[in-house]
Design a binder for these strands. Structure first.
Ligand code: MN
Ligand code: MN
Ligand code: ZN
Ligand code: ZN
Lengths: 136, 136
DNA sequence: ATCCTACAATGGACAGAGTCCAAGTCAAGA
DNA sequence: TCTTGACTTGGACTCTGTCCATTGTAGGAT
């Protein structure tokens, strides 16, 4: 993820230890942490980091398109570092586990013009629901 | 919507003025009100109705399958009386307007087995994003 | 028509998620 | 090294939703 840090520096980001640990925490596949989970993990490396800074940094990463916001339930938003390859989510109704999935085909193709009500439709998010192997 | 009230009475629901106005407020097509919007409209007819009762009643209607919960943003949940005919949602990124849409095809068909990670997949919610005619 | 009581409504305290702000700190260019 | 505007901080605040002890009432029983 140091390529991410490089890109951000290039965009004029002032590099701070707080931003570094937040970016480090948000690394890996199938990572979908809440802001408070990010804060807890960041605080293991940098105990005095504040909640406000985590929220600020996540918001900036989202605005820059480096991280995607995901809300699969009515609870806290989750932050997804896998923002460059578009994908959808498969959520376990039992335990809440989230996997990245790549459906075939384009969901937009399934929305005919007369179902668009004059909207300019630009994207679609799909949440698949089911039970994971442990919960089934 | 008096058919709804009939159905509920048949299920042993005790009929109160509060439940009646909540059910009345939740009538129509493309209706996706937040709990507080439901409360505000219900209070126009029954000024002393409490927020807690609105939340209780909405929760019961959802449990009975008469109303669907929809969360299209990270904000308040919305309550959708159109729960009997399955449908998806088209949301304006500008003003938040929500329309019911019926895409062709089954989204589940687009999720191949090797993308299911052993989950038992039972459903899919699709949120289409775009700009409505006024916002475009 | 009245009584009874289990179920429902109420309002206020509480909790979770997120935003805002004034004051203090510091990264990095001069 | 100095300077300064960007960044961080903690706490207050908002919004959404839940919980609970108390009070009220729908509807069956008499
Ligand atoms: Mn993801
Ligand atoms: Mn709907
Ligand atoms: Zn599970
Ligand atoms: Zn609009």
């Amino acid at each position: 993820m140091s390529d991410l840090l490089e890109r951000l520096r290039g965009r004029g980001w002032r590099m701070t230890s707080q931003r570094r640990v937040v970016a480090e925490v948000l690394d890996g596949d199938h990572v979908h942490l809440t802001a408070d989970e990010v804060h807890a993990r960041a605080a293991r490396r940098l105990p005095e980091i504040s909640r406000a800074t985590v929220y600020n940094t996540l918001g900036e990463l989202v605005a820059l398109g480096e991280v995607a916001e995901v809300s699969t339930d009515g609870r806290a938003k989750r932050y997804d570092p896998n923002a460059h390859r578009p994908h959808q989510h498969l959520v376990c109704s039992g335990c809440g586990a989230i996997r990245d999935v790549r459906p075939t085909g384009d969901p937009l193709a399934d929305l005919p013009a007369q179902e668009r009500f004059g909207f300019t439709v630009s994207g679609a998010e799909v949440t698949y629901r089911g039970l994971c192997p442990s919960c089934a």
